[in-house]
């Protein structure tokens, strides 16, 4: 197991180097840099040059990347070029929003995906299966921003149940906090639950054909008991994989949802920094997202072992 963790950590290191380097060079390829943003349109070439010099933007891109990397190794993510604040502080201040949004949207996705997936698998090809599948694909086809605006119209403007925009921190009360995140989380969940439901349905149909399920049926066990006690766990491996990818992706923030609902999360910070060519902030956000992504996927691998004794055995034996 220790060998496995060490292997994963080594892989994490190379992934981090690759992702941050690629991002750094890609952002550098975009036209314009932070100096133009700081100086504004009514500037002279000399003024731009002075700002670039102050910010160190005149250096070669490789040198700048290496400088950044050495600082990161020392635990310093640097300062934002535009907001003039510490990158780490900016990320930490937005972390609660992103994590809460992630947890809530994943919970809502699972709340939709698991029951519907199980029901559809139990009676594949039935009317309910077709109805759920069609609805799910319909929802998946709706762009997130349309879904967000539609939900705002229904729940904020018409019914006035939930706030249209903004985030209330937990310090403002747990109820206000959840209320402020329900619509954005639901917007994400409405799209994310569909693949989860589909893979669960498909895996479960296979599981339900296994002999031990037949045995359970022949023993006269009730259908819900068979489905949720005996069939769900072994059918969840692909679901967990997809969920892991979704969580990793959501750690980077859902830019569109955060923008529509004016949530101060990592996604909005990242997109603002890309537009402003705030390299330090972009790199900080990307580094954070990559680490989160890799850790989540590592956790998913561990979860496989928990869910499936065969995989656990393989890992312990060193074949994993």
């Amino acid at each position: 197991m220790i060998k496995l963790i060490a292997k994963k950590l080594l892989r994490l290191f190379f992934i981090l180097i690759a992702v941050t380097a690629i991002t750094f060079f890609m952002v550098n390829l975009l036209p314009g840099d932070a100096a133009y943003n700081i100086a504004g349109p009514d500037s002279t070439a000399e003024e731009i040059e002075n700002i670039r010099k102050d910010l160190g933007l005149n250096e070669n891109v490789v040198v700048r990347y290496l400088n950044w990397l050495f600082k990161v190794v020392k635990g310093d993510l640097g300062e934002s070029l535009l907001a003039r604040g510490l990158v780490s502080r900016a990320i930490v201040s937005r972390l609660p929003v992103t994590i809460e949004l992630l947890v809530l949207s994943v919970l809502l996705s699972l709340m939709l995906a698991i029951p519907f997936g199980v029901i559809c698998a139990y009676k594949p090809g039935s009317l309910i299966d077709k109805a759920v599948s069609s609805t799910a694909f319909g929802m998946m086809a709706v762009p997130v921003f349309v879904m967000g605006i539609a939900l705002i119209y229904i729940f904020s403007i018409h019914l006035r149940w939930l706030p249209a925009t903004g985030f209330s921190p937990i310090s403002a009360g747990i109820f206000a906090n959840i209320k402020s995140l329900l619509l954005p989380a639901f917007t994400i969940a409405m799209v994310e639950w569909v693949p989860l439901m589909r893979v669960l349905r498909s895996d479960m149909i296979t599981t339900l054909q296994e002999n031990y399920i037949l045995m359970a049926r022949s023993k006269g066990l009730p259908a819900p008991y068979i489905l949720f006690r005996h069939a769900l766990q072994p059918s969840s491996l692909t679901l967990i994989t997809i969920l892991g990818l979704q969580i990793g992706h959501l750690f980077g923030g859902s830019m569109i949802v955060e923008t529509i609902f004016a949530l101060p999360g990592i996604g909005r910070l990242l997109i603002g920094s890309i537009f402003g060519r705030d390299y330090a902030m972009v790199q900080g956000c990307i580094l954070f997202t990559t680490i989160a992504y890799v850790i989540v996927n590592f956790a998913v691998d561990m979860l496989y072992a928990f869910l499936d004794p065969r995989i656990r055995k393989q890992m312990v034996d060193g074949h994993g």
């Binding site: 605006i149 705002i152 904020s156 903004g166 004016a262 101060p264 909005r268």
Partner: peptide, 19 residues
């Protein structure tokens, strides 16, 4: 002062009485 970057949702916040 709150930053609400999306035009539609900013307007929705006014209608909903948040802003």
């Amino acid at each position: 002062f709150r930053v609400l970057p999306d035009h539609q949702s900013r307007y929705a916040s006014l209608i909903a009485g948040q802003m």
